[in-house]
Computed example of a mutant assay.
Amino acid sequence: MKQLLIKPEIHKSNTFDEFYNEFNVGEKDLILTIDPIFSTYLKDRKEKFNVVFPEHYALGEPTDEMIDKILADTRKIDYDRVIAIGGGSILDIAKLFALRQAERSEQLYLREVPIIKEKKLVIIPTTCGTGSEVTNISIALVTKKNTKMGLAGDELSADFTVLIPELLLKLPYKVFVTSSVDALIHAAESFLSPKTCSYTELFSVKAMEIILKGYMEVIEKGQEHFRTIIEDFLVASNYAGIAFGNTGVGAVHAMSYPLGGVYHVPHGEANYQFFIEVFKYYEKKQPNGKIQEIKKLIANVIGTTENEAFEDLGQLLNNLLALKPLKEYGMKHEEIESFAKNVLETQQRLLKNNYVPFSEHDLINIYSKLY
């Protein structure tokens, strides 16, 4: 039985210049990034290269229609390597540009055409949460299904991952919190996954410890302190990515997808809404087992009792960023049942990684509690 796979070669550069020189960026590169990164680190370079700004096509998280527009505009570009510099959305989009292009990207997500990798792929995260730099998954809203869907396969893995802490120094505080909470959830869901093993636990446990200790420092020393320890969060996010890249994630992610797809709630923030409640529900359904181990880990790090671990973790996270009821995002009460049905119909890839199975009734109960 397979235990652990780390597909990309992982590099770490202190500065963007260090990366740029080491990887010999040039005219055969297609770079996907955002305006602020381009203006700060790429605009004045003498070398020629091709640049695409996904944000110019549509704001928010990627859809198949947005991806198709970008693909149409880049078909005539001659490139051998894709370099993605950005948050999770850009990294997920970039993975498709390393593949043989389908007529429509929807065909890839619906598995109607084969996945064939044709280009080298370099991924550089600019948030501390996605983990996409070390996973073989691309997520997009598939318009036909009106929900986010995941395309997974080793063909989507990066050839190189580069961690550059300098790129995260100007993150807005809210982006820091929501992205790092996403990494915490990756690690926690990986720890409880049926596919976990002693190797993935090494990465998930270390990621949780680093993130929780960092949160306690930020709460003690003030919001801006996160910039001082941002490298720790970037590494922890990478660890969490390695963990869940091997084990998958579960109900927290699955339940967040309709919220993100319909109401365009950013991925990390959407996951945050369901994190604590899903884990409490796990414990209610199966109090014996690994749920007790993760409670013990959390309690030891944040300094509380095992009985109060989830409650106090929720309070700690709320001190960083207030949790909102789902209705504040625009969700309607009558959508609770349709969201639950949607999750069961479209997210079995994730639900099979649950600590315990969830029925439609279970999903409805959680949505209702958080509404």
Rank of each mutant, 00 (worst) to 15 (best):
I219V: 15
K119F: 02
A94E: 04
L363V: 13
T178V: 08
I31R: 09
G150N: 14
Y199H: 08
G303A: 03
H333L: 13
T126Y: 01
K195H: 01
K332C: 02
D232T: 06
E106H: 00
L30Y: 01
Y355I: 13
A187V: 10
I298N: 08
P54E: 07
D35G: 02
G87W: 00
A158S: 03
L171P: 07
K285N: 11
A72G: 00
P287N: 10
N288S: 13
Q107R: 05
V52C: 03
I185G: 08
K295Q: 15
Y20S: 13
G222T: 06
P54G: 02
T247P: 11
S138M: 00
K117N: 14
T127N: 08
I93R: 05
T40N: 15
L212F: 06
A340P: 09
E306C: 06
K170T: 12
D73A: 07
L313A: 10
L30G: 03
L323I: 15
Y57I: 04
L320V: 07
I67D: 05
S105R: 00
F160E: 14
A322M: 13
N21P: 05
S39Q: 14
G88W: 01
L234H: 04
L234Y: 04
I302F: 08
K280L: 13
L184D: 13
A270I: 11
P258V: 02
R349K: 09
A309H: 10
L202S: 04
R81N: 05
H267K: 02
A299C: 05
P125T: 04
V25I: 09
M1W: 01
E106M: 00
I116E: 15
F358H: 15
K324N: 13
K221D: 09
L167E: 14
L71Y: 01
N238V: 01
N146H: 06
T15E: 08
P258I: 01
L202P: 02
L156T: 05
I364G: 06
T178R: 04
A187F: 03
L167G: 11
V278N: 11
Y109M: 07
L316F: 01
N146P: 05
I229C: 07
S368N: 12
S256E: 12
T346A: 03
V249D: 12
G86R: 05
L96W: 07
K170Q: 10
A270H: 12
K95Y: 01
V82G: 05
F53A: 06
I164D: 11
F244E: 13
F339H: 12
P172W: 01
H11R: 06
P194W: 02
A84K: 01
D232L: 09
A243M: 04
V301E: 14
K221P: 09
L169A: 12
F176S: 05
